[in-house]
Design a protein around this nucleic acid. Structure first.
Lengths: 230, 230
DNA sequence: GGCCAACTGCCACTTTCTGTCAGTTGGATG
DNA sequence: CATCCAACTGACAGAAAGTGGCAGTTGGCC
C-alpha cells in the first residue's frame, strides 16, 4: 500500500509490540513481504531511527527524540474516554478518582477545544448497560464525526418507520444496549439519537459542517444541562 | 530524492521553523516542487500528523498530544488497564484495536518491567461480568501489591470455612461479579483468588516479598498459558 | 475587487517499489 | 559440528508510485 504511511505504522508497531520482535511478525503486521520489510527497516534507519537487529533474535527499537512522538490517535482517545467512563461507575472510589484524573490529564494535552468537546461529549453521554455488537461500519461513522462530514442514512425507528435522512454526526455514543449515533438531524432540525441497528444504509454525503460542529456540541451539552436541572 | 526520508525531514522542518510557515517555504526547504509539497503534507496527515493549514496564512504543526512519559501513577495505570480491558470486549473492532494500542503505548512508557507485569496481569485476568461494589479497603490491598508487602487476612470461602492466612498479593482483579485479589497463598503454597467479600480482616503483615514478585507474576502467567493450551 | 496562499485535478514521464527466489551470516542450541 | 533461527543481501521484471507543470478554485483579509 502507501509506503510512507506504512513506515509510520511500522514505527508504531515497533513501539507498541513487546521487544524483541521478528521481521516476520512485523511483515505480517504491516502487510508486506519479508523482503520489503527489510527494506522498510533500512529506510527507517536511514531516516534516523535507531533499530537494533540481532540475528536469530529479532529487532529492538531504541527510543529517540528525533523520531515522531508517540501519540494517541482519535480512536485511541475515544477508547480511553469510554473505558475510563466505565471504570468511574464500577464502584471503587480510589479507582474512580484515578480514572477521572487520567481523563483530565489526557484532556489537557488535546490541542484545541474541538477535541475536548468530543472527549467530554462521549464520556458524558455514556450510560451503563452497553452490551452491543457492532453491526455496520461504525468506523465510517466515527470518521465522519472527526472529519465533520454529513452522513446520508436510511433509518428505521423503533416504530418501524423507515426514512432517508442527512445527519451531522457529533459523536458515537455507547448507550442503551446498543451503539448509537448522536447527531443533528437535518430532516427534523433537532438533535437525535440513531441506534446503529436501525441504520440500514450509510454513506458520506460529501458535505462538510466544520464551522457548525463546535457550536452544535456546545448547544447539545447545554440542552443536556437544561434537561437535568429543569 | 527518497520520499520517505523527505517526509521525516518535512516533519522536522515544521517542528523547527517558526509557525506559520508557507508551503512555498517548506517546498524550498525539502527541495521539491510546490505541487509535491502539498502531496507530502497530505501524506503526513494521513499518517496521523496534525497539521493545520489556513488559506492566505500558512501551516502550523500541532505538536501532537504526545504521550508524556511517566505521568501516570499506579492507581491511574490500573484504571487505564481496567477500562481498556472493558472496551476490548465491547465488540467494536476498531475501538478494541485502539484500546490494545493504548495499553501497549502506556506500557511502553512505564519505567521498569515490574510495572509492566502488574499491567499485563491485571488486563489478562480481567473477566467480563464485573459488577461490584468495593466492600473493604481495597486501596490497602492495591498498595500492598505495589509495595510488595505480605497481607494477613481472615478469609471465608464459598463453602463457609474460615481461615487465617498470609498472602502475597499480586494484583487486584475485577472478575466474577466481585473484586478479587490474586495472590500467592502461603498456607496452600499455590496461587489463589480471594473474593473481596470473603475477606473479613485485613492488615499489612509487615514483611516484604520484593524479590519474589516478578517471579511469581511470571509463573502465574505461565500457569495461565498452560491451562489455556493444555 | 484584488491579493495571498492553501488546495485540487489532470497528464505524460520517471522513478521507485514490490514480490520472488536464491543465497549468506552469526549466534544459540543440541 | 550440525541444525535451526532469523537477520540480511543481490538480482530482476512487472507494477505502482511519485514527479513537475499548469490551470484552475476557494476562503479570508485589506
Amino acid at each position: 500500500m502507501a509506503r510512507p504511511d506504512r513506515l509510520f505504522r511500522l514505527l508504531q508497531a515497533m513501539r507498541v509490540l513487546p521487544a524483541p520482535i521478528t521481521a516476520a511478525r512485523l511483515a505480517e503486521e504491516t502487510e508486506v513481504s519479508l523482503r520489503s520489510l527489510y527494506r522498510d527497516i533500512d529506510s527507517l534507519r536511514a531516516a534516523g531511527a535507531r533499530i537494533e537487529g540481532e540475528r536469530g533474535y529479532g529487532y529492538r527499537l531504541i527510543e529517540d527524540y528525533a523520531l515522531p512522538p508517540q501519540t494517541f490517535d482519535r480512536d485511541e482517545i475515544e477508547a480511553l474516554a469510554l473505558g475510563l467512563a466505565e471504570v468511574k461507575r464500577m464502584g471503587d472510589p480510589a479507582l474512580a478518582k484515578a480514572a477521572a484524573s487520567v481523563l483530565a490529564k489526557v484532556a489537557a494535552t488535546l490541542p484545541d477545544d474541538r477535541e475536548q468537546h468530543l472527549f467530554h461529549a462521549v464520556s458524558q453521554v455514556y450510560r451503563p448497560d452497553a452490551r452491543f455488537a457492532a453491526g455496520l461500519d461504525m468506523d465510517l461513522v466515527r470518521q465522519a464525526c472527526w472529519r465533520e462530514e454529513a452522513l446520508a442514512i436510511r433509518y428505521t425507528d423503533k416504530a418501524g418507520a423507515t426514512s432517508e435522512r442527512t445527519i451531522l454526526p457529533l459523536a458515537v455514543v455507547y448507550t442503551e444496549g446498543t451503539l448509537t449515533v448522536l447527531a443533528w438531524c437535518c430532516l427534523r432540525e433537532a438533535f437525535r439519537m440513531f441506534r446503529a441497528d436501525g441504520i440500514s444504509q450509510l454513506r458520506l454525503a460529501g458535505t462538510s459542517f466544520r464551522p457548525r460542529r463546535v457550536v452544535l456540541l456546545r448547544e447539545y451539552l447545554a440542552e443536556l444541562q437544561g434537561r437535568r436541572t429543569g
